[in-house]
C-alpha cells in the first residue's frame, strides 16, 4: 500500500517536472500513432466514400474483408508484420523490424479497417440523404465523392479519432514488431507494461496519466464534434 502511495506521489512529480524519459516516450507514441493515423486516413477515407457512392464488382468483397480484418487480434497482426519484416521474410531487406516504421505499419493495418468501416457507415447515410439531389444535378463521380468527404467531415473526424484511440492504446502488435527498445521504439503502452513488470510504478503511473489524458481528449473531442453537428454550429 505504501509502495503504491509512493508511486503515485512520484508519478505526479514526474509529470509536473516534465521528466525527460516521460516526455520522450510520450512524444514518440504520438509521432508513431499520428503517422499511422495519417497513412490510414489517406487510405480509409477515400475508400469509404467510394464504397458509399459507387456500385462496383468487388464492393461487397471489400466490405466483408474489412469487417474480417477489423476482428483480427492485434497480436496476430504483430506476428504477421513480424514475419513479413524479419530478415528471412519477403521485406526483410528493408531492415524495418524493430524500428518505429514497423510499428507504424502494424498500427496502419490495425486501424485502417476500423476507420474505413466507421466512415463508410456515416457516408452511406449521408449519401442516401444526398443521392437524389446529386444525381439530379449531374454531378460527376468525383464531385460526389468530394462532396461527401467535405460535408461528412465531422463524422470522418470522429472515425479518425476512434482510430487514434485504438492505435495509441494498443500494445501487443507494437511490442512484437517494435521490440520496446529504450530510446528507439519504446512508447507509452510498451513502457507501462515493462515498468509494471519491473515493479516501478512511478513511471508506469505517470505514463498512464498521459495515456488517460489522451484518451479523455479523444472522447471529449468526439463528443464535442457530435454536438456541433446536431446543433448545427459550424
Amino acid at each position: 500500500m505504501n509502495d503504491l502511495w509512493n508511486g503515485i506521489q512520484q508519478a505526479i512529480s514526474l509529470t509536473l517536472t516534465l521528466d525527460a524519459d516521460l516526455v520522450e516516450i510520450s512524444l514518440r507514441s504520438l509521432r508513431v500513432t499520428l503517422s499511422a493515423l495519417f497513412v490510414s486516413c489517406l487510405i480509409a477515407l477515400p475508400l469509404a466514400a467510394i464504397l458509399a457512392v459507387r456500385r462496383f464488382k468487388y464492393r461487397r468483397l471489400i466490405i466483408s474483408t474489412l469487417n474480417a480484418l477489423m476482428g483480427l487480434p492485434p497480436v496476430v497482426v504483430g506476428l504477421i508484420v513480424y514475419i513479413l519484416l524479419s530478415r528471412s521474410g519477403p521485406f526483410g531487406v528493408l531492415g524495418l523490424l524493430f524500428t518505429t516504421h514497423a510499428m507504424v505499419i502494424a498500427q496502419v493495418i490495425i486501424i485502417t479497417p476500423l476507420i474505413t468501416s466507421i466512415a463508410h457507415q456515416s457516408l452511406r447515410e449521408l449519401w442516401s440523404e444526398y443521392h437524389d439531389l446529386l444525381i439530379s444535378m449531374n454531378t460527376s463521380k468525383w464531385q460526389r465523392i468530394k462532396t461527401l468527404l467535405w460535408d461528412g467531415r465531422r463524422a470522418l473526424m470522429t472515425a479518425s479519432l476512434a482510430g487514434f484511440g485504438r492505435a495509441i492504446g494498443e500494445v501487443g502488435a507494437i511490442m512484437i514488431v517494435g521490440g520496446n527498445i529504450d530510446h528507439a521504439t519504446r512508447v507509452l503502452t510498451t513502457a507501462i507494461s515493462l515498468e509494471t513488470s519491473k515493479g516501478d510504478f512511478a513511471l508506469a503511473l505517470a505514463l498512464g496519466f498521459v495515456l488517460i489524458t489522451l484518451a479523455l481528449a479523444v472522447n471529449f473531442t468526439t463528443h464535442w464534434l457530435g454536438r456541433t453537428e446536431r446543433e448545427g454550429r459550424w
Binding site: E129, Y130, D132, S136, T147, D151, G152
Partner: peptide, 17 residues
C-alpha cells in the same frame, strides 16, 4: 438537355452547408 434541367424534390434536400 440534362445540363439545362433542375428538379425540386417534394421534401427539400439540403446539403449540410
Amino acid at each position: 438537355a440534362q445540363e439545362q434541367q433542375s428538379f425540386v424534390f417534394q421534401s427539400p434536400i439540403m446539403l449540410r452547408r
